[in-house]
Design a protein around this nucleic acid. Sequence first.
DNA 1: ACGCTATTGTTGAGACAGTCAACTTTTTAG
DNA 2: CTAAAAAGTTGACTGTCTCAACAATAGCGT
Lengths: 307, 307
Amino acid sequence: MTMVDDIATMRAFNRFYTRIIGLLEEGMHNSPYALSEARVVHEIGKRNATTASELCEALAMDRGQMSRLVWRLSDLGLLASLPGADKRSNNLALTPQGDTIYRDLNAASDADAENLLTPLDPLSRLDLVAAMRRIEAILAGPVPGGTLTLRPPCIGEIGQLIARQGLLYHLEQGWNHEFELLITRIYAEFDAAPDPATKGLWIADYAGELAGSIFVLPAPDEDRTAQLRMLYVEPAFRGLGIGKTLVAEVVRFSRAAGYRRVILWTQDCLASARRIYQATGFELVEEEKHHSFGADLNGQYWALNLQ
Amino acid sequence: MTMVDDIATMRAFNRFYTRIIGLLEEGMHNSPYALSEARVVHEIGKRNATTASELCEALAMDRGQMSRLVWRLSDLGLLASLPGADKRSNNLALTPQGDTIYRDLNAASDADAENLLTPLDPLSRLDLVAAMRRIEAILAGPVPGGTLTLRPPCIGEIGQLIARQGLLYHLEQGWNHEFELLITRIYAEFDAAPDPATKGLWIADYAGELAGSIFVLPAPDEDRTAQLRMLYVEPAFRGLGIGKTLVAEVVRFSRAAGYRRVILWTQDCLASARRIYQATGFELVEEEKHHSFGADLNGQYWALNLQ
DNA sequence: ACGCTATTGTTGAGACAGTCAACTTTTTAG
DNA sequence: CTAAAAAGTTGACTGTCTCAACAATAGCGT
C-alpha cells in the first residue's frame, strides 16, 4: 500500500468512527446532563481530584467554557471546590451526589459500548478490542513507564510471531516469502523438540502489547548445547532493552537447564541483534556467505560458553 | 478477556480517538469554512450530486441545520441546486468554485492524516491501517456487494492463517495450543512439498479482507491423489458461499493438475465444512475416534474421485 | 524585595451547532 | 380522492466553542 492509500484508509476510518462516537454520545442525551458536563464529571471521577486547567488539558476544552461548566456543576451540587495550596486554582472533587451521577453515567456508557459488542461473534470481538489497543499503542507511542514481562505464548501468538517477523524482515531487509516459510518450519521444529524441560519460548509483553520474542531448544548434533533462535523486537518497542532482556532470559534458562553452551545463527545485516549478542558475551565462531530469501547474506554463527 | 475488560478497552479507545479526531478537525479551522460546511462540501463532492435529505442521513445532521447550511453555501457560490424530478427537493451539486474548495479541503485533510502517518515506522503504519480496516469491517459488517477473489498469500499471511485458525478453533471448539502447533507443522509441510505445479494455497479475499483460505498438496503414500487441507472461513464472512468457492477451486486445480482423487481429513464437529464437502461430492471413507488438542474428537476421512 | 513573565481562572461578546416544533409543498399509498 | 408520509423552510431557543480582555497569584532571576 502506498502512502496515498493509507491516507485514504485513515480518512475513511475517521469518518466512519466519527459516526460511531456520535452514536455513542447520543445515549448521553437521555440523561439530564449535557455532553460536556458529563465529560467533566467523568474526568474528575476518574482522577478523584483535579484543577480546572488539568481538565482543560485532558478534555481539550477552552478555559472559559470550563469555568462556566464548573460553576454550573457546582450549582447543581455535583462538584465541590476546595481551595488548594495554589491560591489561583481550586481543587475540584465530586460531592457524594456527583459521585452517584458519575457512576450512573459510567453505567450508561458501559451499556452503550456493550450494545456494540454483544452482536459480535467472539473472534470478532477479540479482533475489535485488539485492533483498538493496537491503534492506541501506535498513535500514542509506547507507554513510558510500562512494565515488561516475559511469558509463554497465548493461543494465536505463534502464528502472530510468524506473521510479524515475515512482514518485518520483508520491510526492513527486503527478504521474500521464503523467509516466512522458513520460520514456519523453525517454529514447527520448536514444537517437535521432545523434552519440554530443555526448551522454552518467551513473549516479551510490554504494557500488555506483544513487543518481541525469543526461543531456545537443544541444538542438533551437539551435546549439552542450546540453540537460541528467532530473537525479535517490534520496531515500535525498540530502545527499551527488550532484546537484551530476552537474550538474558535464554542464557539464564540454558544455564539452569544444564546446558554448557549456547549457539545461534544470525545475519550480519541484523546489527542491533549482533550488538546484543556481543554485549551478552557471545563470540563470533564462523561466517558464511549465502543466498537466501532473495538476498545475498552473510550468515554468522555465534556461541557462548556457560563455563 | 471478559466483557467488562472489552467494554473498558472500547471506552478508553473512544476517548482516545475522540481526541485524535478533534486534532484532525482543528486543521479545518484554518480554512474560512466552518466544520459542518466543510463536511457538507465534502459529502456532495464525493457523491457528485445529492439531495439535502441524503446529506442529513449521511452526516447525521438535523434537517433544519442542513437547510440553513445549504443556503449559506449557495450564497457563497459553492453550491448550485437544480430542481429535480421530485419537486419537493433540489439536486445539489458543487459549482466550479465549490469543486475547487472541495479539492482544497481534501488536500488539507490529506495533509493532516499524513502528519499522523509519517512519523511511524513502516510496520506500524501497516498495522495502523490494517487495524482501522478491521474495526470498520467488524462494526459495519461485511459489505453486501463485495467481490470475492481467490489469490496466493501475501507476506505475513501464512502466519496470520495459523494465528486465526488457532484462535478460531480454540474459541469455537475449545481446542488448546497443541492445535496451533499442529497447523504450524502442516503449513511447514505445505512449504516442504517439492513440486510447485502439484500444490496450491488460496486466500479468499472478500472486499479486501482476508475471509478464509484453503490449500492442496500431493497426498503422502498415494499416487495421483491430492490432499485438501486447512479449509477455513472467518466467522464474520460465513454464509457468503466462500467455503464452497474455496473447495471448488481446489477440485478444479486438482483435476487440471492431473490428480485422480482428492482426499481430506476433518472432524465431525465441524458441521458446516462437512456440508460443503458433501455438496461438492466427497464421500465419507472412514471414521476414527481420537483425543487431540485437549478434546475427544471423531476424525473423518473423505474422498472425491475425479473420474 | 523587586519587577517581569507565566499560569490560573473569570467574564463578555459573538459565531456556530444542534434540537424542537410548526408549517408548506409535493409524493405516495390505500 | 383523501390521508399519511416525506422534503424542505423557518423561528425560537439552548448549548458549544472561540476570542479577547482582565484580575489574581506564582515563580524566577537579579
